[in-house]
Design a protein around this nucleic acid. Sequence first.
DNA 1: AATGCCACTTGACCTGGATCAAGTGGCGGA
DNA 2: TCCGCCACTTGATCCAGGTCAAGTGGCATT
Lengths: 201, 201
Amino acid sequence: MYFCFSMTSNYEPILQNVEKHIPLSEADKVFFCSLLQERRYQKKEYLLREGNICHQLAFITSGCVKSYLLDRKGNEHILTIAIADWWVADYQSLVFDTPSELFIEAVEPTTALLLTKEKRNMLFARIPPFEQYFRILTERAFAVSQQRITDILSLPAAERYEQFLRRYHRIAGSFSQQQIASFIGVTPAFFSRMLKSKRPS
Amino acid sequence: MYFCFSMTSNYEPILQNVEKHIPLSEADKVFFCSLLQERRYQKKEYLLREGNICHQLAFITSGCVKSYLLDRKGNEHILTIAIADWWVADYQSLVFDTPSELFIEAVEPTTALLLTKEKRNMLFARIPPFEQYFRILTERAFAVSQQRITDILSLPAAERYEQFLRRYHRIAGSFSQQQIASFIGVTPAFFSRMLKSKRPS
DNA sequence: AATGCCACTTGACCTGGATCAAGTGGCGGA
DNA sequence: TCCGCCACTTGATCCAGGTCAAGTGGCATT
């Protein structure tokens, strides 16, 4: 069965991810995968642009993606970083059907599996345990998001950087200093000085 | 049926809230309500203290609650504000079973319906549509949380205050200036000056 | 070897907001 | 009526981090 073989080779990571939380029959897997659309993005290509309504979630199978907004001075502020095995979307736009204020952009060549909101609803209707899967994922994402708020409110920049290193050390190498500075919420110039003061060798 | 009457009078708000999202049979309602525990809190009483593990969610039926952390200088930073018809918990602690860094405290006399994590799991097992209910609520909470991060990263204090007024104008009156200052992430002293400069009457 | 670009650094200066301490003013309790 | 408390204000000073502009130093292209 060629179809089946090629399916599992592309979809294995996402199926493993789902099966960490809920059991799936073979028929469930086939149906689920039939709703997904694979898409490749070059470095700097957009998954979503400001002003558009986000109507899909993307599961990253390889590569790396950032979501960010531009303030009125044109400065970039990174909201999230997503790597393989993570879902990414603008939930603000997805949930409330409002135009997005975010750009979602590939930081390196990336492949993603896209699931539109409509198809996700079909999925929920046909295989209710996916409600649980997305509930669990969203609860975790929410918890992390809350932690990020308390970090920003209560920690100085240097300690926010330490938190970043603790949580993202595996992928810190894929990001330029400018990107990291933007994520922890400081300017590249200040971040550079901060690093220098940390290593007085 | 006394039991039934007193039940619906206390539980009506939460049932209405749930039924906005999923349909419930009478038996579902009785089972759901049997898992809830009503509790009253005086002003300044704690629903959760730093260092404890958060093992329950609270649905506010009246009053008002804040969650906050104290940084190492002892400054209070408000993470969330919750009023009637909102769920509140420390998700960080609830989801990952780690000791909480937050205090959750009644801002005024408050009544809440408590649902422990274990009982919520029983609820999911017995009435799967509650998975959907909590998925939807968590997605919204997550979206709002993401918006809060972008506000903090990209807006100056005065505009964060305007956002606060837009989103919480109904309850802004229940909060002292100090509380609002803490929520938008500035000191009371700076907040006071900010207000003065805004009304040059 | 020269060019150009890009990430990073560095210096000089600026500013939003913090800090600390001393008011003010209202209101509830004895 | 006086007292004490609490929320808020205000002044003086400080500092984390921003801004802007001029380097430096790799590395890829020609």
